[in-house]
Design a protein around this nucleic acid. Structure first.
Length: 424
RNA sequence: GGAGAGGUGGCUGAGUGGUCGAAAGCGGCGGUCUUGAAAACCGUUGAACCUCGCGGUUCCCAGGGUUCGAAUCCCUGCCUCUCCGCCA
């Protein structure tokens, strides 16, 4: 949600800034609706004020033993009028809310202009893909040859875009999770949290998935309706929904490992091969709740925390800053980290680190008390994958493959795998 | 699943249907005192929205209802706690 005062007082500039990310705000419709709101609110509140004053008078008159009948007659019908006015106002407020909750965040000034991922800007690379003396296989072939990654079984149990990992690959998957959690808690100062995988619609509204992106979610047939989380960002960021955080508790830095569930509506035929795009995958997610003045420093650090995982795994990667047209709905600025996949001979997204500024905080009413103003003010929220576990596993398998199809286990993971050195 | 109790400001906790946005205490902030601190004392201290301002509106878990008027009465839902049953 954008600052409503931007829409009320500076809507033309705001609309222009939104165009850069491909969103066309209907300025005239908004202005008209906002005008109606103002008018109806003034009317409603003056009727309410009248009722309050008269009711007080009646109370006083009754206490003094006066005849209140004339006063009662005077307010007859007022109550109905107020109800009508309130209903009309609520109708307008709902329309305004619908409109406002569908508007994406404004991009930060440092974000490059662009229309699609082709306009994203690479800002650094780390590591080099080892020149292979043999033609590298992709993780599907490798996994099948080892008999440890079974897509057919996943499809039998559930359907397409599900997978079963077995034996040492399942163990590698678990080792990656533990390695990442230990790194972020021990070295980067995050608090590990374990959270629900089902959330309510309020939480999804708070982080921006609802109401606009319901189609991307899996819903559970429950009453009230619950949804499977598409990312740990949802439950963890919502820790601070409707709360005023103590200044001394900021920044909040939390790390969670969860499964993530995505319907992948609209990506039919995309990445159908392999584990890159699954309906269910696991992720280690970083979330920070910070003072506004610190949020861009925090974004750099958070991105660095995600990069550190790849560095320790010695996986080559690059960092790109997303252009205005390619950013997610709530993001003001996003860095994607892309890992080198020899099987595809290209970099693929393995992490996305975003500063949402006050966009989610406003939807969530997540605030802190600023001692300078003495007032509650909105916090800034950030999140980033560190990392997507399934894709990291793919990267390890493909980058550490040997000519005979076996996989060397990265040094930092061996202690989590009984000091095993190789998967064969 | 059965029986009961309860949800009020940062926290604890009062609140006969009518100056209640709400007593009191704690905490926070400011001050007096003190070499400094503590203690004591005095004052102050919820949020959102409308308005240049005066001021106004809304909010006592949520949503409905009764009433001229609801924190207070009624209905529904959600959540918490206690006891019983079941259960990983």
């Amino acid at each position: 949600m954008l600052d409503p005062s931007l829409l009320k007082n500076d809507i033309d500039n705001t609309a222009e800034a939104l165009v850069s990310r491909g969103y066309n705000l209907d300025v005239d419709a908004f202005k008209a609706l906002e005008g109606r709101r103002k008018e109806q609110q003034t009317l409603t509140e003056s009727l309410q004020a009248m009722r309050n004053a008269r009711s007080k008078e009646i109370g006083r008159a009754k206490a003094e033993g006066e005849d209140i009948q004339p006063l009662l007659e005077e307010v007859a019908g007022l109550s109905d009028k107020i109800k009508q006015a309130e209903a009309a106002l609520n109708q307008i407020l709902v329309e305004l809310e619908d409109l406002q909750s569908a508007i994406p965040n404004l991009p930060h000034e440092s974000v490059p202009l662009g229309k699609s991922e082709d306009d994203n800007l690479e800002i650094r690379r780390w590591g080099e893909s080892k020149p292979n003396p043999f033609k590298p296989k992709d993780h599907v072939d490798l996994g099948q040859k080892l008999g440890l990654i079974d897509f057919d079984l996943g499809a039998k149990l559930t359907g397409s875009r599900f997978v079963v990992m077995k034996g040492a690959v399942a163990q590698l998957h678990r080792a990656l999770i533990q390695f990442m959690l230990d790194l972020h808690t021990d070295d980067h100062g995050y608090t590990e949290v374990n959270v629900p995988y089902l959330v309510n619609s309020e939480s999804l509204y708070g982080t921006g998935q609802l109401p606009k992106f319901e189609i991307d979610l899996f819903a559970v047939n429950s009453d009230p309706q619950y949804y499977l989380i598409p990312t740990a960002e949802v439950p963890v960021t919502n820790f601070v929904r409707n709360t005023i955080v103590d200044e001394s508790d900021l920044p909040l830095q939390m790390v969670a490992h969860t499964p993530c569930f995505r319907s992948e509506a609209g990506s039919y035929g995309k990445d159908t091969r392999g584990m890159i795009r699954q309906h269910q995958f696991e992720k280690v997610e970083l979330v920070q709740i910070v003072k506004p003045e610190n949020s861009y420093d925090a974004l750099e650090r958070l991105t660095g925390h995600a990069e550190k995982v790849l560095q320790l795994l010695e996986l080559p990667y690059r960092v790109v800053v997303l252009c205005t047209g390619d950013m997610g709905f709530g993001a003001a600025k996003t860095y994607d980290i892309e890992v080198w996949l020899p099987g595809q001979e290209r970099y693929r997204e393995i992490s996305s680190c975003s500063n949402l500024e006050a966009f989610q905080a406003r939807r969530m009413a997540a605030r802190w008390r600023n001692p300078e103003s003495g007032k509650p003010e909105l916090v800034h929220t950030l999140n980033g994958s560190a990392l997507a576990v399934g894709r990291t596993l793919v990267a390890v398998v493909e980058n550490y493959q040997q000519e005979d199809g076996t996989i060397t286990i990265p040094d930092v993971l061996r202690k989590y795998m009984g000091n095993k050195k190789i998967i064969k």
